[in-house]
Design a protein around this nucleic acid. Structure first.
Lengths: 121, 121
DNA sequence: CCGAAGAATCGATTGATGTCAATATCCATC
DNA sequence: GATGGATATTGACATCAATCGATTCTTCGG
């Protein structure tokens, strides 16, 4: 079994609708994926490459982590749907999935400044 | 020493600029704060209250967690700058800090679609 | 095929984190 | 200042997560 590219359901509004237990679990998993220094730096490095993609071999050294560790982080990010894998010969390329990042971003969208008395059912 | 309300520096662009080790640490800490089902539900519940604030006594039951656990989560969120505390008599109120949420949200902002290759005519 | 290079998996270790019972603290009131 | 309600803190425990060395797997070149 490789990495499941199954896009995890995750992106309930959070601050707008009531967050159920299941939604909270899924969302937490998604945020956990980016709640790590190494993975954040991976995302940052990859996002800045042309095409928003990078070979693993170009990520190990700047990260300053062992190769298995980097591989692990890339897996987590991929399983979270934030990265997509593609093999090119010997190398493995990881590409940013902007839609997923954006979806996660929207979760933190605040409700309109102050909807005031608009409290309809 | 109660909860340090020190707003943690955290909000480097991530996907736009190169993310250094220290920025990554701070950012990871911030995201860790919301990378938990209980805390996400707390934020969700509080955000939906009038004034985006709620008394602890109104958060325990809907969360389904023990009081110390809720208190712990509220502390984490407050230390992350996402919530602000205010005492009112016997009760403690926690209020959402929208600016902080928004700041965290901006971290995930994508760079302009694709400034690299000339895709537009 | 064989060997080498790139990357993923395995196994173990260490540290962080969520959870709750018990206890302590703070505050209003009597 | 004793009492009771509302929160916070402490301590303990179990689980999860990050990390890396060793190994395995995959692919390409000869």
């Amino acid at each position: 079994m490789s990495i499941k590219a199954k896009p995890p359901r995750c992106c309930a509004p959070l601050l707008r609708a009531r967050l159920g237990r299941d939604d909270a679990e899924a969302l937490a998993t998604a945020f956990k994926a980016i709640a790590d220094p190494g993975r954040l730096r991976l995302l940052s490095h990859i996002a800045r490459q042309p095409g928003a993609e990078a070979c693993v071999c170009n990520l190990i050294e700047p990260l300053g982590l062992a190769q298995p560790t980097v591989s692990h982080h890339l897996r987590v990010l991929t399983e979270a749907g934030l990265l997509a894998r593609e093999r090119r010969g010997t190398w493995m390329f990881y590409r940013l999935v902007p839609e997923r990042v954006e979806a996660l971003r929207q979760v933190l969208a605040l409700p309109a400044e102050r909807p005031a008395a608009k409290r309809s059912a």
